[in-house]
Simulated scan of single mutants.
Amino acid sequence: MAKKRAITVQDSVINIVRHREEDFLSLTDMVRNLPNSHIIIGNWLRRKDTIEFLGLWEQLYNADFKLIDFEEFKIEAGTNRFTLSPQQWIGKTNAQGLLSKSGRYGGTFAHKDIAFEFAAWINPGFKLYLIKEFQRLKEVEGRERHAEWDLRRALAATNYRIHTDAVKDKLIPWAEVPQKNDVFIYAEEADLINLALFGLTAKQWKEQHPEEAARRLTIRDSADTFQLIVLSNLESLNAILIHKDFSKKERYEMMREAAITQLTSLRKTSALQKL
């Protein structure tokens, strides 16, 4: 599970985690302040309507859902003798819509679709407030992601022109090399920096990350903020080394040493950690 976030709904702090690229809300937190909170989730799971809803959700989104075990639960659901825990539901049917986590910060989490249904069962008004707070959280996160993207784009572009100008002025013999081959020289220099910083060329990264490559992402798209800062610094450093006529091997060794030193230093800087 990813790092938790939280929203407050009618004085209840409800934790949210990212799982399989989706938001899961804590059902445990939703009932924590209610009487007999320890049996509420179990009572909800005993209902036939609940089992049918959960089963339909799993059939829509979970190719590994075990239908035979689900049908057994559906037959028994609603009877006085029927009981079901989140762990039993997940274990028997291979369900993905619920998560059960033990420990101090554990509890039962549900995909947002299921969590909203559970909230409506508790109280329709509570569901409305829950949706409102959840939407507010997503709007805030959307603005933060946009700001982060702008920062990453600015970092990536900081010394790009300095680097390409150095390649153009010193490494591309304009009178001898056909212009269609210029791109290969630029790519070779970009990969020299990739090797120094990431330990991989762009091609090697694509081969190791086929899903990201299919989405047209690159090795530099995967970089964190610290790596982008160092990337910008390496572009400036490589431009200086190119002008001073260092060999490719010498430039790689100096950039590799610089990358290791700078990353180590940046990751220890508390101000940048906050950034």
Rank of each mutant, 00 (worst) to 15 (best):
Arg20Leu: 12
Ser26Gly: 03
Ala2Pro: 00
Thr83Gln: 08
Phe24Leu: 05
Leu197Thr: 03
Glu72Arg: 15
Gly103Ala: 09
Leu200Glu: 13
Leu263Pro: 02
Ile51His: 02
Asp113Lys: 06
His146Gly: 00
Leu54Phe: 01
Glu72Thr: 13
Arg161Pro: 00
Asn238Ile: 09
Tyr61Val: 03
Ala115Phe: 04
Asp150Ile: 10
Ala213Met: 06
Val183Ser: 06
Glu76Thr: 04
Leu56Asn: 07
His209Ser: 07
Phe134Ser: 06
Ala157Gly: 09
Asn36Glu: 12
Trp205Leu: 06
Thr201His: 05
Ile90Val: 11
Ile122Met: 13
Asp69Trp: 11
Trp44Met: 03
Gln179Ala: 09
Thr108Leu: 07
Asn123Arg: 07
Gly78Met: 08
Thr164Leu: 14
Glu22Arg: 10
Ser85Asp: 02
Lys138Ala: 05
Glu71Thr: 13
Glu21Leu: 11
Asn233His: 15
Glu141Phe: 05
Leu234Ile: 11
Asp182Arg: 13
Leu137Arg: 12
Gln208Phe: 03
Lys168Pro: 00
Arg220Glu: 07
Asp150Ser: 08
Leu60Arg: 06
Thr218Arg: 03
Val31His: 02
Phe118Lys: 04
Lys268Tyr: 05
Glu58Thr: 01
Pro35Trp: 02
Ile193Val: 15
Asp113Gln: 09
Thr225Gly: 01
Arg256Phe: 14
Ala119Leu: 07
Ile75Lys: 12
Lys249Tyr: 09
Val31Lys: 01
Asp69Arg: 15
Phe70Leu: 05
Arg47Leu: 09
Leu98Cys: 01
Lys203Asp: 11
Ala202Glu: 08
Arg47Gly: 02
Lys170Pro: 00
Ile172Leu: 14
Leu237Arg: 02
Ala175Phe: 09
Asn80Glu: 11
Tyr105Pro: 00
Asp165His: 12
Glu72Met: 12
Ala157Pro: 08
Leu263Glu: 03
Phe73Gly: 01
Gln204Ile: 04
Arg267Asn: 07
Ile14Tyr: 04
Thr225Val: 14
Met254Tyr: 05
Glu58Ser: 09
Pro86Asp: 01
Phe134Asp: 03
Pro173Ile: 08
Ala63Met: 10
Asp69Val: 05
Lys170Gly: 00
Lys3Asn: 13
Glu257His: 15
Lys244Glu: 13
Met1Ala: 06
Val183Asp: 03
Leu67Ile: 12
Leu151Asp: 11
Glu58Leu: 07
Leu60Gln: 10
Thr50Met: 02
Asp191Tyr: 05
Glu117His: 08
Lys132Val: 00
His111Lys: 07
Arg143Ala: 09
Ile162Phe: 09
Asn159Met: 12
Ser236His: 07
Phe226His: 08
Leu192Cys: 01
Thr269Lys: 06
Phe134Arg: 06
Val183Arg: 13
Ile162Ala: 05
Arg104Gln: 15
Leu60Cys: 02
Ile185Ala: 00
Trp121Cys: 00
Gln179Pro: 02
Leu275Val: 12
Val140His: 11
